[in-house]
């Protein structure tokens, strides 16, 4: 019976230590907030295109396709870092890549795309950031994977990395692709 006096506190300590260690080793950014939108229909919006401002675009246009919504801005430095990867995904053509230009000046956004390349099927201009609010965007860049039924399947906050593409986004895209 006496041994319990040592075993119980040691066990409690071990459990706490294991939990802390797991968190520490997971490499997960505590600033990253799990999105409640995963598994929910992608919010609808009607916004002008960046290149043809007179044309209005809605996510309904891509019903039946798996697509990636990449939220970016010309003022966003990490967007530049992930741009080659976005370009690569668009070039592979497994999914349709749509750009949501978030709280940006049209002129700046166009110049940025002219300079760094425009991999997007369409670019939507969300100058007021209202669509961003509906998608729970709080840190640009953000990337959403939306399935053929229009349901958000994955969200990545911050610049896309080759690791995220390899371990998370890639396999999901493959499993959703027709």
């Amino acid at each position: 019976m006496r041994a319990w006096r040592f075993i119980v506190p040691a066990a409690v300590f071990a459990v706490i230590a294991i939990f802390l260690l797991l968190r520490l080793q997971s490499g997960r950014d505590a600033k990253e907030i799990p999105s409640p939108l995963i598994g929910k229909p992608a919010p609808a919006f009607s916004l002008p295109l960046l290149h043809q401002a007179e044309q209005v675009w809605s996510p309904g246009a891509l019903k039946g396709q798996v697509w990636l919504l990449n939220v970016w801005a010309s003022w966003c430095v990490p967007c530049l870092a992930e741009h080659p990867l976005i370009t690569q995904i668009a070039r592979e053509g497994k999914v349709t890549v749509v750009g949501l230009n978030y709280k940006d000046e049209v002129g700046n956004a166009r110049a940025w795309l002219a300079k760094h390349g425009d991999p997007y099927r369409v670019v939507i201009s969300d100058r007021a950031g209202r669509a961003g609010l509906d998608y729970g965007v709080y840190g640009v860049p953000e990337t959403f994977l939306i399935d053929a039924q229009g349901v958000i399947r994955y969200k990545h906050v911050g610049p896309l990395t080759p690791e995220v593409l390899r371990d998370r986004l890639g396999p999901l895209m493959k499993s959703l692709a027709p």
């Binding site: 907030i33 799990p34 999105s35 409640p36 939108l37 929910k40 509906d134 998608y135 729970g136 709080y138």
Partner: peptide
């Protein structure tokens, strides 16, 4: 807001 940004 919770529906979009989570409980956080």
């Amino acid at each position: 807001l919770v529906e979009r940004f989570g409980e956080f």
